[in-house]
C-alpha cells in the first residue's frame, strides 16, 4: 500500500500534465483541419464576391486609422529610443536606418497584425458566434449556402490580401513618424534623414514584412472564424469565443513571426 503511493502520485502528476497537453494538441489539430477546409472551399466554387468586398472594407479600410496611428507613434518612439541608446556609443546617426529596418521587418507587420487581431478577430468571432447562437448559420445551410464558403472564405481571403497593404502603409507612416521626430526633436536634416532611409532599406526588408502581413492576416481571420463557428451558447459563449479568438490570434502571430524571421533572416 505504502509502496503504491509514489506510483499513484506520479500517475496523478502525469495525468495533470497530460490532459492539458492532449487538449492543446487536439485544439491545434482542429484549427489545422479548419484551415485546410477553408483552403479547400477557397479553390472550389461558388465564390461570394459581395461578401468578399464587404470583408475587404471592414478588415482593410476600416483598420487603416488604428494601424496608421499605431505605426506613427511607434516610429516616433523608436527614433527617440535609438537616438537615446545610440548616444551611449556615439551612434546617434543610425536613427533613420534602424527606424526603417525596424518598422519594415518587425514592428510594422507585428504591431499591425496585433492591432488587426484586436479589432478584426474579435469582431469576426462575435459576429459569427452570434449568428450561430441565433440559428443564422443553420438558416444558411437550409438555404443551400455553405457557411464556410459564405462566411469564412471571404473573410480569410480579404484579411490575407488586406493586411499586407495595411502593413505597407503602416511602414510608410511609421518611418514618417520617425522622420518627423528626427527633424523636429533630434536635429536631423530632413534630406539627409530621407536619403539614409532610402539608401539603407532593401527590397527584401519591405517584402519580408509584407509576406508576414499576409500570414498574420490569414491567422487573424482564420482564428476569428474558427472561434465564432465553435462558439458556445448564449452571451457567455459568444464572449468566450471573442476572447479566445483575440488571444489565439495574438499568440499565433508572435509565434509565426519568430518562425518567419528565422526562415527569412538566419541563412
Amino acid at each position: 500500500m505504502i509502496a503504491d503511493r509514489p506510483a499513484g502520485v506520479l500517475a496523478m502528476i502525469l495525468a495533470r500534465i497530460g490532459r492539458p497537453v492532449v487538449a492543446t494538441l487536439a485544439a491545434f489539430g482542429r484549427v489545422v483541419l479548419f484551415a485546410l477546409d477553408t483552403v479547400r472551399h477557397l479553390v472550389t466554387p461558388p465564390f461570394y464576391w459581395r461578401e468578399f468586398g464587404q470583408a475587404l472594407m471592414q478588415i482593410g479600410w476600416f483598420s487603416l486609422p488604428v494601424v496608421g496611428l499605431t505605426a506613427f507613434f511607434t516610429g516616433g518612439a523608436l527614433a527617440l529610443q535609438i537616438y537615446s541608446g545610440g548616444s551611449r556609443f556615439s551612434a546617434e546617426a543610425v536613427v533613420p536606418q534602424i527606424v526603417a529596418i525596424g518598422m519594415a521587418r518587425e514592428l510594422g507587420p507585428v504591431l499591425g497584425g496585433l492591432m488587426v487581431a484586436a479589432r478584426v478577430a474579435s469582431s469576426i468571432a462575435a459576429e459569427i458566434g452570434t449568428m450561430k447562437v441565433t440559428e443564422q448559420i443553420d438558416a444558411l445551410v437550409t438555404l443551400s449556402t455553405h457557411p464556410m464558403k459564405y462566411l469564412t472564405v471571404p473573410r480569410v481571403l480579404a484579411a490575407t490580401l488586406a493586411v499586407p497593404v495595411l502593413v505597407g502603409i503602416g511602414d510608410s507612416i511609421g518611418i514618417s513618424g520617425g522622420w518627423l521626430v528626427g527633424i523636429t526633436k533630434l536635429d536631423f536634416n530632413s534630406a539627409t534623414y530621407l536619403k539614409n532611409t532610402t539608401d539603407f532599406l532593401e527590397v527584401w526588408d519591405v517584402g519580408s514584412g509584407l509576406v508576414k502581413g499576409a500570414v498574420f492576416g490569414f491567422i487573424v481571420a482564420l482564428m476569428g472564424c474558427y472561434a465564432g463557428m465553435n462558439s458556445g451558447r448564449g452571451a457567455q459563449g459568444v464572449g468566450a469565443a471573442t476572447k479566445s479568438a483575440v488571444v489565439a490570434a495574438s499568440v499565433l502571430i508572435l509565434a509565426a513571426n519568430y518562425l518567419l524571421t528565422g526562415v527569412f533572416f538566419t541563412s
Binding site: 449568428m131 441565433t134 440559428e135 443564422q136 443553420d138 438558416a139 437550409t142
Partner: peptide, 10 residues
C-alpha cells in the same frame, strides 16, 4: 424553414 427566432441575416 421558419426558425424559432426568425434567424434573419442582420
Amino acid at each position: 424553414m421558419l426558425f424559432q427566432g426568425g434567424a434573419l441575416f442582420d
